[in-house]
Design a protein around this nucleic acid. Sequence first.
DNA 1: TCTGGGGTCCTAGGACCC
DNA 2: TCTGGGGTCCTAGGACCC
Length: 404
Amino acid sequence: MDAFFVSVEELFDPSLKGMPVVVGGKPNERGVVSAASYAARKCGVHSAMPLRTAYKMCPQAIFVEGHRDRYCEYSGRVFEVLNRFSPSVEMASIDEAYLDLTGSERLHGPPLAAAQKLHQAVKQATNLNCSIGIAASRMVAKVASDQAKPNGILWIVPGQEASFLAPLDVRRIPGVGKVTQRNLHACGIRKVGDLAALDREFLEERFGQWGVALAGKARGEDAGGWFDHEVGEAEPKSISHEHTFMEDTADAAALDAMLTRLSEMVARRLRDHALYARTVQIKLRYSDFSTFTRARTLERATQIDSELASAARNLFHKAWKKKPIRLLGVYAQQLEASEGQANLLEEEKTEAWRKTLQAVDKMRDKYGDSVVSLAAGMPATFRARVHENPENLPGKEPKKSSRE
DNA sequence: TCTGGGGTCCTAGGACCC
DNA sequence: TCTGGGGTCCTAGGACCC
């Protein structure tokens, strides 16, 4: 999809059309650009750029918060259109998909005609523009669709892969980021063609096994192959939440509260997926952006808020250098379908928690996530108030709202 | 310029085991 | 006496993608 987030925002607010628009947050917030309209890109704004930088470069731009639910909905509509065209559709992300059109010639005609039909169908169903790359491998199709932007179609005829790729910057190859680009430039390799011309031994010595794969990509060979993944929703391999503070803080109570809240969010999603985490990891980032992770593997896998939270807080306090913190994160890894064996005492305890959390999850579904929380996740001032006078508990407050 | 949040995959060293 | 070879698990860090 072309400038997907911005284009969806334009559907909801047509006055944004043609304007420099930045999706991601307010211009003075800590955050980065999720998407920029083509008008904003003309000022030099691009995704992943800090919002404050974007504001300096393009002060006249309109800054809007992202609406993930809207993007998901439109992503679903696009998927429905694609699914009509081919039974094997792989959504690679919220705004990118691969279609296998093998054997669909009788139905859709030759590749270019099929792509034109598809392009029109997407436009008709969503009023959004997309770009389409057609090729004999996924990788080449992806690069072709990037080159076709905006709103274009590009067909790389079989046999022409290498000559199509050769004049492009190495950065265009999926998997080549800033660091690899810098390393390749240091060897005098700037274009994909330079890469394709090198011999295997040189690349293997310099970049390891990955260099060999890279040389293949440069010639248009796709190690991944076609739709060899499992069908249906793949289970996640990790679940995480992280938070960057508006201002760095060394307030231990505030940090503990944040770790608790993040743990609750992670645990909630573990339960949604019916998964248990064997490994808990935390991430901390100081004011100078130096970043550390600490992990611990548990005796038994868990999906219980308080178990995750206490593991996270232990890890944090062992690692924390008592300096102001910019970011905290909580990660669940080594996800398993069951918690494994336990002794009788533990079994009783987890059973009690399981029932409690089931009820809590129902309340959160109905009234929002903040309606119930571990006390440790609440602001310290609030905890103190309740401690001094239990009448301050939300349910006992005199004025009733629907939340309560 | 001052750097989000959600992920995946890879590497490398050390502990431990046979 | 100057110290193997293979495997798995765990931990930490980093590149990359959208």
